Computed example of a mutant assay.
Amino acid sequence: MTAEPTLIGSVRRALHLLDAVGASERPVPAKVLARSVGLPLPTTYHLLRTLVHEGYLRKLDDGYALGDQVSELCQRTTLHAFLPRTRPALRALRDEMRGAAYLSLYSDGDIKLIDIADSPAAPSVDLWVGVHESAHATAFGKCILSGLDSDGRRDYLSRHRLADLTPHTITDRQVLEQMLVRCGDVFRDREEYLLGTACVATPVRAPGVLGAVAVSLPARRLGSAPLQSLHRTARRVSRALAV
């Protein structure tokens, strides 16, 4: 006989409220929500205040609507839907190149790190500065920037400061633009993001998708990195994203 799972009642009630708000095309008053989910009104108000505080709901004059946190969650869910198709290729790349492997995508005007395949023998880089602040200093960020058209790249760079992360970081926009043109289909970061660490990346492309696969390595190993493994993985990931 299978034991019943232990469920947290307050979490279930909050989720039911979210469902009720999401099912309506218009803001829903608290009294209507209380009736629709079968909760006492004081309990409903308590849960609604919590959901508003956390950004999952917004309180308007005529009721409650979904908040920004729900939109961000939906966006992340869409991006993460790729993972079952792409993760095996990243893990194989990690093992072949003996370095942590990364998948990043351009989404809604920003460069987002979607997945990392690492291990004790191939640890990932300490991401002490967020990806959205450091695209100019990472191989995968520069790879994606190079794939944007001139207007898209100009827009991105106008919204992101070229922060000086190490003595090797490119902080001059003109120098960065020239480097993006020269790199071809392989992009490198030699201690630009973190001293002692290097990264190599190549583009991932599918209909409606612009991204990059990358591997981080000790800087001393950058020159011997087997780029054929990187290119093969990029092709595998591109096919997976096109499905």
Rank of each mutant, 00 (worst) to 15 (best):
L241A: 07
A240S: 11
C183N: 11
S36N: 08
A34I: 05
G208D: 02
A225N: 07
S119Q: 00
R190V: 15
G99H: 04
V213S: 06
D151W: 08
A242D: 14
C199T: 14
G211I: 01
A122W: 01
K142V: 00
P203Y: 01
L47Y: 13
R236D: 09
D189V: 05
I116T: 06
V70E: 07
L51S: 01
E72C: 08
A219T: 13
I144E: 09
L210Y: 04
A135Q: 03
G99Q: 06
A135G: 03
L113E: 02
D95N: 08
V21G: 03
R205I: 08
A100W: 02
G63M: 07
Q228H: 14
L33K: 07
L227N: 02
D68W: 09
R190I: 13
M1Y: 09
D62P: 01
L222D: 09
S107R: 13
D155T: 14
P88A: 11
A92W: 10
G9E: 15
A23H: 07
D19P: 00
I114H: 02
R153E: 10
H136T: 06
A65K: 10
S229M: 03
L180A: 08
C199A: 15
P207K: 10
R98Y: 00
T202S: 10
R58I: 12
E192L: 04
L90C: 07
T233W: 03
A89K: 05
S124Y: 12
A34T: 05
R190G: 05
L18N: 04
V32D: 13
Y193P: 02
A137D: 06
A163E: 06
E177W: 07
I114L: 15
G211H: 03
K112V: 15
G55N: 03
L113N: 01
L33D: 04
K59Y: 06
R220G: 07
M1W: 08
S124G: 15
L60C: 10
T2R: 14
I8F: 15
L15N: 02
V129M: 12
A214F: 05
E54D: 14
T171L: 09
A89L: 05
V125W: 05
H136I: 07
L93G: 00
G196E: 11
A14N: 03
A206Q: 11
R12D: 14
M97D: 00
G67Q: 09
R235Q: 14
R85Q: 14
R173A: 12
Q69I: 02
S36M: 08
C143R: 04
A198N: 01
V11L: 15
E192H: 06
K142S: 00
L176N: 10
R153A: 09
R239I: 00
G152A: 03
R98D: 06
P207V: 12
G55V: 01
I114G: 03
D68Q: 14
R94H: 01
S238N: 05
F187R: 00
R154M: 02
L148K: 04
R13I: 02
A100Y: 04
T233N: 04
H16N: 11
L195T: 12
D118I: 08
E177N: 11
A212S: 15
R205W: 05
R220E: 15
T197Q: 14
R161L: 08
H46W: 12
A122N: 07
P123A: 03
V186T: 13
P167Y: 01
I170V: 15
